[in-house]
Design a protein around this nucleic acid. Structure first.
Lengths: 220, 220
DNA sequence: GTAATTTGTTAGATTAATCTAACAAATATT
DNA sequence: AATATTTGTTAGATTAATCTAACAAATTAC
């Protein structure tokens, strides 16, 4: 059995490995806001438990058992987010902190029931894939809106930032998953975009926003 | 903000105070399965936080703020049990351990939503009252079935033991809350009872069982 | 009312998870 | 290549929550 703290290290390792390929003690330290010596000693502990490959001064890697454990926590987190939104009436901007706590509940049955009640969902409310019970993850490569061109026709499929402020910004503009948008113009200087969608007046969005919106091209 | 561990001490203090009137270090120690010196030092800590009245060698008492806190945890526990049974399809014998964990989730809104979705229930799946948001508890005095007489007509209103084994025993005999029963006979020697209910054949139940069934008399 | 038992406290050790300070290795800069 | 910077480790302290051993107070038994 892993402690809540250990679970958070594993989850962070998986997250950073997905983002950056390999993970330094320093990255993990910054991500978790925990000082490097603490991280080093936790890595040694997790190495003893067979969850992490650790060698001094080398990048950190999850073992296959560590990865399995980490994926199972991500599964619980995302199922919870989906449950909170679909079954309890939360907004997608409200669920992250709660799911961060509930993911550590020790009860396989509890998450089984969520999965069943939700009809075995493949994606969470932010468009992130929910790993299945065997740890298999349906990966889809989305584009960042910021990498798209003028006149592209796109659908918003996911967001890569779950902060409440960002999601409230999207709510205020009706930018939800599934929204079809076209790019009317892109400012050369700072990549500010003007986009159009539904019956909305054109919206001007900064690079900070367009980098966080994950889209797919629509043939049309 | 109180730690999960502190919350468990507060809850135990409230529980034992309800059961036995006043609470000794020893009682608390046994109930929590934590050694007495640890309990003593935690009581000093909770006293500093203004949650417990502590004086050496005197019985322990919650302060009003400690009691409020404890009741709020009980509320979260019972709302959770109700939610698990009513909205997630768990049996009443499965929910205690899960609720024991979820009661510590830090999110008032999460429990508000449960309350709302459940329609502000007054009792949990075991018949225990759910304190309202202000900490008010609808107390009803039930009888133990073991204190009733031959030919009494009774309704099961609650159980005072939530162990999975006991509840499975009741499930196997269709003894649910609301079941109307009559006492056919009581064995003088060991208080074993024969009871009759619904279309069931007469059931013989031990004192251990009849002590755990809380009932109300039916005029009829 | 003294002795025995039970209950409670003090003192000090332990474990998990954190920290700071100091130093060492690896990497980047010029 | 030598130096500076960044990254990582070691050593030792701290805090929360636990423990055991020893002792002290309160209660019970005779």
């Amino acid at each position: 059995m892993n402690s809540l703290v250990e679970e958070n290290y594993l989850k962070a390792l998986l997250h950073l490995a997905n983002q950056e390929g390999f993970v330094n003690v320093n990255d993990l330290s910054k991500h978790l806001k925990i000082k490097m010596p603490t991280v080093t000693s936790m890595m040694k502990k997790l190495a003893l438990k067979g969850l992490v490959h650790y060698e001094s001064y080398k990048p950190l890697r999850l073992t296959s058992s560590g990865k399995k454990e980490a994926i199972s926590i991500v599964r619980k987190h995302r199922l919870t987010e989906m449950f909170l939104v679909e079954k309890m009436g939360f907004g997608w901007e409200e669920v992250h902190e709660i799911a961060e706590q509930i993911e550590h509940i020790q009860s396989p049955l509890f998450f089984e029931k969520m999965d069943l009640l939700l009809g075995f969902p493949k994606f969470d409310p932010h468009g992130s894939p929910i790993p299945d019970k065997n740890g298999k993850i349906e990966t889809r490569k989305y584009l960042k809106l910021s990498d798209c061109q003028i006149n592209d026709k796109l659908v918003i499929k996911a967001v890569n930032n779950h902060s409440s402020d960002f999601l409230k910004y999207l709510n205020a503009r009706d930018l939800t998953l599934g929204t079809k948008i076209s790019i009317l113009s892109i400012e050369d200087f700072d990549k500010t975009m003007v986009i159009q969608y539904d019956n909305h007046p054109a919206e001007t969005i900064s690079l900070t926003v367009s980098e966080r919106l994950l889209v797919e091209k629509v043939k049309k």
